[in-house]
């Protein structure tokens, strides 16, 4: 029987003066993962963009549970998005979207 794949949702904040489209953002993430771990490694992360809000510069991505630290390292290595200077920080990590959004909301209130 196939083992069930565990996933994790990462809430990200984009630290930049500029604004970016969702394509620019996810391309930068893919590029960073690919540069650090190669195409084979990137294929094992299960990376997918779930939500992106250009206004609040907030994004949610989904990755395989075993690849969280790899993706975190790749996100930390991002220094530009679409050739404009930017940094990406992980706000929180969660196993469900519901918990993730409640954590984001509580951190905003706090």
């Amino acid at each position: 029987m196939l083992k069930k794949v565990k996933r994790r949702y990462l809430a990200l904040s984009i630290d930049s003066q500029e604004s970016f489209s969702s394509e620019e953002f996810i391309n930068a993430v893919w590029l960073a993962v690919q540069k650090l771990f190669g195409e084979c490694g990137a294929s094992q992360t299960g990376l997918r963009l779930i939500d992106y809000d250009a206004g609040s510069k907030l994004a949610v991505i989904r990755v395989f549970h075993v690849a969280v630290e790899q993706v975190r390292a790749a996100l930390a290595a991002i220094t530009e998005i679409g050739r404009k200077p930017a940094a990406v920080h992980v706000i929180t990590v969660s196993g469900t979207l519901k918990a993730l959004y409640s954590r984001i909301n509580s951190s905003r209130k706090g």
Binding site: D15, R72, A73, L75, A76, P85, A87, H89, V90
Partner: peptide
Amino acid sequence: FLMRKPRE
């Protein structure tokens, strides 16, 4: 801009 969180 090049500063990262401790966990990162």
